Computed example of a mutant assay.
Amino acid sequence: MKNILILGMGKVGTLIGVLLQKHFSVTGLDIKKPHYNYPLDFALIEGDVSDEAFMRKNMKNFDAVVSALPFFLNKKIAELALELNIHYFDLTEDVSTTQYIREISRQAQAVFAPQCGLAPGFIGIVGASLCQPFSKIRDIELRVGALPRHPNGLLAYSFTWSPEGVINEYINDAEAIHNGVRKQVTSLDGLEYINIEGKEFEAFTTSGGLGTMCETYEGKVDTLNYKTIRYPGHCKLMRFLIQELILKNEKETLTRILENAKPPVKEDVVYVYAVVEGWQDEKLLRSEFYRAYLPKEIAGRTWRAISWTTAASVASVVEMVANGQLPQKGFIKQEEIDLDGFRRTENGRLFE
């Protein structure tokens, strides 16, 4: 793997290029060149990713494609990657998109690794790592939150990444294992309060965060769930908008309202919290992982926590495939990725 095409030159896509250009020949592609007022050290192509002929012509020149596009654009990109026999990586949280990519990857002679962001992605790698010392597992509880450090207003939130992606997670049903049974549960349910280092948060069910983990751990655990961390009060207001005002049927309107009301902030924080309970040597024990990631300076610029954690996650998986640490073809589950190997990559070390 030498030549990599990155689709979507937003903040995350641009940073993926910055991180990968140390080891690969990188080209970025977007419908318009980035509007940032600083130079990039990799090539850029302007073009419409929905133009199949244009994409086929350009993608054939690369060994791998990394999609930082909205989830609804990824199916066609994955189809072209299969046709052209090139490695495919993305950040999607959308369950149906991932299921489709997994199905077509059965024919692949290259790697297909969707869901390489934070959740799904890094949180699944962490959760699986916590499970390893246990002979029998009872509970796996995974929590992630990307939040403003200094919240204001009743929503106490800022859209530091795709509003479409956030709304998709809030509306679609989520998968979980409860009382040993794999099932679908309603997003925005399961509200709980958690205390992290003296700070109070709420967490509630959202779609997509577990990736393929329910399939992997079905029959092995009593409880497996994923919840999104927010400041207290957020869930109640989102229920009001989505369920009572029935804006779940007006996604474009809801997106426009929230983008206008809660624009991105520079000072954000990403919380990653995982808990596994089970038995070691016939003793019931609890293992925890907690980190709070803040904005970080990379390549002379300061990047939001959500941007660099997401970009570094997928960049680390790309490194592991290139280094032969992961299978060289077929579908890769995030929970199959070794956390220590992830941390040993150049981009994985950013998480330390």
Rank of each mutant, 00 (worst) to 15 (best):
T206R: 04
W161R: 05
N195Y: 11
A203M: 09
G219P: 09
N195L: 08
E215Y: 06
L191D: 03
L210V: 06
D189N: 08
W161E: 10
G211H: 05
I171R: 11
A174C: 09
N152F: 06
S162K: 01
L147Y: 02
D139Q: 12
G209C: 08
T216E: 12
T160C: 13
M213G: 05
N179R: 10
F134N: 14
L224M: 15
E169I: 11
D189M: 02
N152T: 14
K220T: 06
K220E: 14
G190T: 04
V221G: 11
V181G: 01
A156T: 05
F159W: 12
K136T: 07
K183S: 08
G209F: 04
Q184Y: 05
T205Q: 09
Q184S: 14
F204H: 13
A146S: 15
H178I: 11
G153D: 11
V185H: 01
Q132S: 10
R138A: 05
E141Y: 09
L188P: 01
L188I: 02
I167C: 06
E218R: 02
G211V: 03
V221R: 10
L155A: 10
I177P: 15
M213H: 05
K199M: 08
G219Q: 07
V166T: 07
A146H: 05
P133T: 03
P151C: 08
G219K: 03
G208C: 10
A176Q: 14
N172G: 02
R182E: 13
G153N: 11
K183D: 03
N195Q: 15
D222M: 01
N172V: 06
L191Q: 04
L210R: 04
I167E: 03
F201E: 03
Y157R: 01
G153E: 07
A156F: 00
Y193L: 10
Y193I: 05
G198A: 10
K136S: 14
R143A: 06
G145V: 12
G198Y: 13
C214P: 12
A156S: 15
E175A: 03
L191T: 06
V185G: 03
R182S: 14
Y217P: 13
K199S: 12
G190V: 04
A174V: 02
T223V: 11
L224E: 13
R138L: 08
L154N: 09
I140H: 14
C214D: 14
R182V: 02
F159S: 07
T160E: 06
D222R: 07
F204D: 00
I196A: 03
G165K: 04
L224S: 08
K136G: 01
T216R: 12
G165V: 07
V181S: 11
R149V: 05
N172M: 15
